[in-house]
Amino acid sequence: MKYKQLGKSDLRISTIGFGCMSLKADQKENERIIHEAVELGINFFDTADLYDKGMKEISVGKALQQKRQQVIIATKVGNQWRKDGSGWDWNPRKDYILTCVDQSLQRLQTDYIDLYQLHGGTINDPIEETIDAFETLQQQGKIRYYGISSIRPNVISKYVSLSNIVSVMMQYSLLDRRPEETCLPLLEEHNISVLVRGSVASGLLVNKPAKGYLNYNEDEVQKAAIAIQQLSTSNRSAAQTAIQFVLSNPAVTSAVVGIRTSEQLKEAVEAVSATQLTESQKEALANSIERNYYSDHRE
């Protein structure tokens, strides 16, 4: 496993992160695969209070309680479940964040959260109030660092200019290269780590039948999947090729992968040591379909 510095923080995280949203309801099985991940070198575990109404945090907390000093735990805040359980509403207010962190700490069975992330955000949010909440929690020692999870260029640039975020989690893959236009260069310039989700585009680049995705039609998705397959070998699977494509961008620190099985775990971990994509291979992938761009949230 390889490790990289998380932005301006003193945390070094594994280049493959464990996305805990995919964990099952079976606690024994969750503990087994999480412990296996730690043994294989993964030290970054990402969850959210939204996932399964906090149950994923509880599961992660139980699994990592005896390994707390070995790992870096990230979770997210900002989505408030309605009392009737019918869905959730966006709430980036300071008082809500200050309340939620204590609940997450309790569920995770820890005294501090390594990386606390805003789980979304709009340009119309009270952004300075939200930042103040995270700064307050940092001063209190409840969180070590904070970041955001967002794909909106205007929101990202606002936090870059106003806050001390160390990371941005965003969707990025061969089928979603929208971040390349402005977000990735901006974050790299400011030494803010990019945490990638969706590197295999919901499986469309690996093993799912082609269908429309974002602005791409079925034929274009098929072209991208074929390009991935053509560069896959006995020493590098399609999933590993897709993961390497996003990790090759210098702005990217870690690919956070949803993992359910030992096979998926090993394949993701081995993407780091598998035969690396050459510059010409990366260029071939990039040229397989026309690059897409963000059409909204630009200003």
Rank of each mutant, 00 (worst) to 15 (best):
Y146T: 02
K67C: 04
L23I: 14
Y3Q: 13
E128F: 00
A25K: 11
D111A: 12
N191I: 03
F18N: 06
Q138E: 15
Y51M: 15
K208G: 01
Q230Y: 00
Q117M: 06
E299K: 03
Q264P: 05
I156A: 12
V257M: 03
Q230P: 00
K4D: 03
S237A: 07
I148F: 10
V221W: 12
I156R: 06
R197D: 03
T253E: 12
S202Y: 08
A225I: 03
I192M: 15
T261L: 06
S161L: 12
K28H: 06
L98W: 08
S14N: 12
V256L: 13
Q171I: 14
V206K: 01
N191Y: 14
E31D: 03
G41H: 10
Q140S: 07
K158F: 06
L205S: 11
E188F: 09
K53F: 13
F245W: 08
A74K: 03
E29L: 04
G147D: 09
I259Q: 02
V200Y: 15
S163C: 09
E279F: 08
G120W: 04
E189R: 08
E135S: 08
T15Y: 03
I151A: 13
V38T: 04
K24H: 12
P250Y: 05
G41T: 13
D10A: 05
E220W: 10
L40R: 15
N191D: 14
G85M: 11
D52I: 00
I127A: 07
S173H: 07
H297D: 14
E299A: 01
Q69V: 05
A210D: 14
S254H: 06
L204I: 09
A274M: 13
L115R: 13
C100W: 10
K62Y: 07
W81E: 05
V194F: 09
P92G: 00
G61M: 05
Y96S: 05
A242E: 03
V77N: 01
W90V: 13
S150T: 04
W88M: 09
L247E: 00
E39G: 06
T233I: 01
